[in-house]
Each structure stands twice: as structure tokens, then as C-alpha cells.
Amino acid sequence: MQIDINNLSFAYGHKLVLDKLSLTLNPGSFLVIRGKNGTGKSTLIKCLLGINLVKNGMIFFDHNDVNNFKGWTTVGYVSQVIDEFNYEFPLTVNELLSITKLRKVKENRKLKLLDQMGILEILNENIGSLSGGQLQRVFIVKSILNHPSLLILDEPTASIDKNNVEYFYETVNQLHSEGTTIILITHDEYLDCYNYSHVLQMNPDLSYAFRKRTATEEKEAE
């Protein structure tokens, strides 16, 4: 999916958080968003997802304005925290994954993804009994089940312990190689694990730098 952002500004009340941000991502790009807390990373993502409302003409998905965009079912999204999800009512991982998709989930893909993320054994467990990291991985599987053409991830590794992060970036890299456009907010310590193509550096003074991945970065990663 192609993404165009044109002079995007956004304010919470009088506090400006995003100031005239512009960038273009071609289909299949992998954008990593970096920056300290409070630089507007999550705000940008919320604008992209239509959670923060923006004026017409600022964000386009495949040349469609975000405010009139109809293809949300092809967008996968995992938020930083998933505490708004209802945990007390019994629901198994399998039920969560099968009630989620409108199109019939191919059973094999579901099992394969769970296995890839190292959580196949919890298929029939109640989501209320899972650890934060397990739950986060379940939500990641949920967001990519349907082969999204755009996947947006807001620090998805935040609650996953270090031993299991590997499962995650391997899966993301694989999706990228299959042509999914990816936008990811991540901590710098994991940066080298991803095959990203672009970097957006966001700064506390609202300035930003958008660039392609450099050759040095690629070397370092190797």
C-alpha cells in the first residue's frame, strides 16, 4: 500500500504535537519510527489510523484520503497496550483468532503463525490466563492473519521478554519480504533486527528527519 503524508500538523488542544510532517512510502516499504517519549510517534500512528481526526488532504492511502478510506480490513494494527481488551469474560486464543476475521481464516496459516511466534501451545487457553507477552503475541498474530497490505505496529515488543522478541522480528521481516508495507515504532536496541527500508527520526522540538536506510546501517546490521 502506498502512503502519502502531506504537511500533517496535529495538536491536542493548543499543544502542537506534529508540525508540517510530509513523507511518501512506496508499496512494500518498511518504515521505522524513532524518537524519545513525547515526540509524537504514537500521535502520528493514531492519525494514520483515523483515531486522531485530521483535515482532508493530509494523509492518503493508495491515493485515497484517510477520511474516505474504505480498505481498513486490509490494515493490521497492534497497539502499544492492549488493556482495553475485555479479559474477564472467558475466550480462548482460538476463539479470539477465529471470531476476528470476516474472511475465513485458513486454519494452516493460523497454526503456522502461532508456531512462528512460539505460542502454538496456548491455542486453547483462556486469554485471561496469559502473560502480557503471550497476549501481545496473540494480538500480533491476529493483526497479520489476513495478509494485511499495511501493518502498523506501535512498540509491539514492549511487553515481550527478550528471549521471544526474535520470533517477532522474524515474522515481521517475512511479511515485509512478502510485500506488506510496514510502519513500526521500536526501541533502538532492536533496530538492527529489522530489514527496514526507511527511517523517520522524530525530535522533541517537533523537527523530523525522513530518510532511506544508509549503507552503513546495513553493514552494521550484518
Binding site: T73, V75, Y77, F89
Partner: peptide
């Protein structure tokens, strides 16, 4: 049924389910 249950569990993500 699927839509009803999934939206009820996770209303904020209704949009992504169409």
C-alpha cells in the same frame, strides 16, 4: 455472530474488521 462477538470484545478495532 462472529462480527457481533468480535466487535463486542474489541470495539475500538471494529473498523479493521470492516
Amino acid at each position: 455472530g462472529r462480527q457481533i462477538i468480535s466487535v463486542s470484545f474489541d470495539e475500538n478495532n471494529a473498523k479493521f474488521l470492516g
